[in-house]
Computed example of a mutant assay.
Amino acid sequence: MDDLPRTLVRRDGIGGEVVVRSRFAADETIYELIVNGTFLMDTAETSTERLLAGVLLERHPVPERVLVAGLGFGFTVAELLGDPRVQAVDVVELEPILVEVLRDGVVPGVGAVVGDPRVRVLVDDVRELLPGVAPSTYDGILLDVDNGPDMLVHAANAQVYERPLLTQAARALRPGGLLAVWSAAPSTALGAALADAVGDVDEVVRTVRREGRDIQYHLYFAARRDPE
């Protein structure tokens, strides 16, 4: 039988209250992340977080250096680290409390991910960091900082999905590098902005089962076009 969630962490962060809870379901412990009163993710269903990294690993022949914006529970980073071609992963996370909690081992296994020697965790806002990144730095940039342009937890994150920041991200990619964006809902505006700023866009839709119903999540990928 499922039990009621147990609060493991409840602290005031920069973007609102950060809560990590655990519950027991289907013979396993599930961990949940809630920020500013909004459910962000849990460990029961992590396929789309892993897929965000998996598509990059599948489509890029030499994904040596990757930027991940949005730490979550570390599943995207863990997927990257499972590939020996990946030599360095820079993780940008706005919320220092989340980084501290994961380093402290509140969610089992994540401490090893953020402590991997290939991983550098940058407590920063990706909107402020990207303009200062040198051109052609990364083979892949994976953006998973909110629920997508139409289901924002923080209104300021709208900039992440708009052409100016996507153009800065494209500049930080090496030719042929891949920019990927996670979204909880389809967004034609996001696809158009990516196509304009980066290159040809591909949308991957993943259907997952949650609480007895099917939910579709959307991943948008654009490869940086070769400079003329």
Rank of each mutant, 00 (worst) to 15 (best):
D2E: 14
D3F: 12
P5W: 14
R6G: 09
T7V: 15
T7D: 04
T7H: 06
T7P: 11
L8H: 04
G13E: 12
G15Y: 06
G16P: 10
E17R: 15
A25T: 14
A26T: 13
T29M: 13
T29C: 12
T29I: 15
I30A: 06
Y31G: 06
N36Y: 03
A44E: 12
T46C: 05
S47N: 04
T48K: 01
L51I: 00
G54R: 14
V55M: 12
L57N: 04
E58I: 09
P63E: 03
P63S: 07
R65F: 09
R65V: 14
L67V: 10
G72E: 06
T76S: 10
T76N: 05
T76A: 06
V77T: 15
V77L: 13
L81A: 07
L81Y: 02
P84Y: 00
P84N: 01
Q87M: 13
D90Q: 10
V91L: 01
I97F: 02
L98K: 02
L102F: 00
D104K: 01
V106A: 10
G111P: 07
A112M: 05
A112T: 02
A112G: 14
V114G: 03
D116R: 02
R118Y: 00
V119P: 02
V123P: 04
V123F: 01
V123S: 00
L129C: 02
L130F: 08
S136L: 13
Y138L: 10
Y138D: 05
D139Q: 14
G140R: 06
I141F: 08
L143F: 12
D144W: 05
D144Q: 05
D146C: 09
D146P: 11
G148I: 05
P149K: 02
D150I: 07
D150S: 15
M151G: 03
V153Q: 01
A155S: 13
A155E: 15
N157D: 08
N157V: 03
Q159N: 00
V160W: 06
Y161F: 15
Y161P: 09
E162D: 15
E162G: 14
T167W: 01
A170K: 01
R174N: 11
L179K: 02
A180Y: 06
A180W: 02
V181L: 10
S183W: 05
S187T: 07
S187Y: 08
G191C: 11
L194P: 12
A195W: 09
A195C: 11
G199V: 12
D200A: 14
D200N: 03
D200V: 13
V201T: 10
R206D: 13
G212M: 09
D214G: 11
I215F: 11
H218M: 07
H218R: 05
L219T: 06
Y220C: 05
F221R: 02
P227H: 10
E228R: 15
